[in-house]
Design a protein around this nucleic acid. Structure first.
Lengths: 269, 269
DNA sequence: ATTCAAGTTCACTCATTTAATCACAAAAAT
DNA sequence: ATTTTTGTGATTAAATGAGTGAACTTGAAT
């Protein structure tokens, strides 16, 4: 098989270089040079499968990007920067690019975003859902309730919860096993743990969240069997916000019913 | 004129989004949604100039990337994440991508890179040249001599010099004005300043570098007139390394002749 | 229930970009 | 001087993506 799940460094590197805007010729040429250290067009062509006559264009592209230096002899010799330098170069470029993007978007973003939203929005992909949660957590002023399976309690979310706790937001966490509870207690002393409403540690579930009683989110993992090995993209969530949002109303009802301390419900075994 | 030097946020954002791999439709759609907050296909089409029928594809693309959430009503409504979230999302993605690239390149990099190089290599672009200098500085073991005009003495280089100084490398810096000399003396106490061999603070020059007497670099700015406003890409440099490298031999001769303390040369006015 | 309009999806064309091949000129090596 | 290698340019072919329009679905109104 030529395409394994764990790729060989060659094609992995090529793929990323293309992602950063290099042509496939340029990407292949750079990878060839990286493994050679330096070489002529002929050398490059042989190990990279790039037509010899096109190596020169590829080198030009790389030279303009500062990734390859040229020796003007005949035959010309080409030299590629080190892995570290290449990586740093891209990092700089992308950082710069991202800053431009952020400021541009901020400029044209309307003053008041999502005051009160009717309806329920869907998000998919574990990372996207996590991002949304972090946003909600960061906007919390009084209370966060979050039920989750442990696999979905990433560092991102924990640090966001920590920040919230430091602001004085009360935090209630459910669905995690005893030992993880202990670890979190160390990390975020203010957090209050509760056992999940239903036992779901063995079944692949999802997450449930409510912030300040007016922003809620529910997620579920698509493919049923095992949660761990499932593709991160298979998680789908819906969320809604606003005092009168229907999803909010429903979830608030459930949460307050199950969690409110003055209510006296027997915990489901 | 539609394309100013300082672009409007619209097209600036679109350009960066495309750079990050979005189609132009997707980029335009996202920018439209970012200024609307949320809206239907119709709304988006009107402000983005994207054909209404293709908005759906664009939204799919954005949804997959976690940048847009969808409300499954009729008409469908679309909601874009905040500028901050979008920026963070890209940052994550690119960081991840860059890590893969770095490890892949490191794996296939040959053990011994550039032991002794014959010949002289050319680099162009200010950033690329700076990168090369940082690499040289970081590899210095005994001595760094660096002559430069102030504009080309960036923070990157200063911190690299600082690291070298802390390793005990002796540093000689030339070509900078008195006040900048003072500032650097504070920053890097070990650095020794010397007045440039010829007066070049007013003329657009370039840089001269030698490390450990065996790695040298010379650069020059292409367009003559004023150094400041000149395009950063117009700087071109050549470098060489190795005891017997011709460029090294020549520059070492000059430097030792002019700088060696036991020689007694009258300073050029 | 039927019709109409609006919303959504799909299939197709056209243009632009990019990969790939070829032909030729210049330079080295024999 | 001749032959091989190296470098540049032009040309063709394929693929990607923008743009257009037809067909289908859904919801609302008569």
């Amino acid at each position: 098989m030529s395409d394994n799940l764990v790729e060989d460094p060659q094609s992995a590197a090529i793929k990323q270089l293309e992602r950063f805007g290099l042509s496939t010729y340029a990407a292949r040429t750079f990878v060839a040079l990286a493994s050679l250290g330096s070489g002529t067009a002929k050398d490059v062509s042989q190990v990279s499968e790039v037509p010899r006559t096109r190596v020169y264009d590829a080198i030009d592209e790389l030279h303009d990007r500062g990734l390859v230096d040229i020796q003007n002899t005949s035959p010309k010799e080409f030299w590629s920067v080190s892995a570290e330098t290449a990586s740093r170069t891209f990092e700089h470029e992308l950082q710069r690019s991202n800053n431009i993007l952020r400021t541009a978007l901020n400029e044209l973003e309307p003053a008041q975003r999502r005051a009160e939203q009717r309806g329920v929005w869907t998000v998919s992909g574990q990372q996207a859902i996590t991002n949304r949660l972090v946003e909600f957590f960061d906007s919390a002023e009084e209370e966060i309730v979050y039920m989750t399976i442990e696999d979905l309690l990433t560092e991102d979310l924990l640090s966001s919860l920590r920040r919230a706790a430091e602001r004085g937001v009360s935090i209630r966490l459910g669905g995690v096993s005893a030992d993880v509870q202990a670890r979190i207690q160390d990390d975020i002393p203010g957090a209050e743990m509760f056992d999940s409403l239903w036992v779901w540690s063995d079944t692949p579930a999802g997450r449930l969240m409510m912030v300040d009683g007016q922003k809620t989110l529910v997620s579920a993992l698509a493919n049923g069997k095992d949660a761990k090995s499932s593709d991160p993209r298979s998680e789908t969530a819906i969320w809604g916000e606003g005092e009168t949002n229907s999803l909010v109303v429903v979830l608030r009802a459930i949460f307050t019913w199950r969690l409110d301390p003055n209510e006296d419900i027997v915990s489901t075994k």
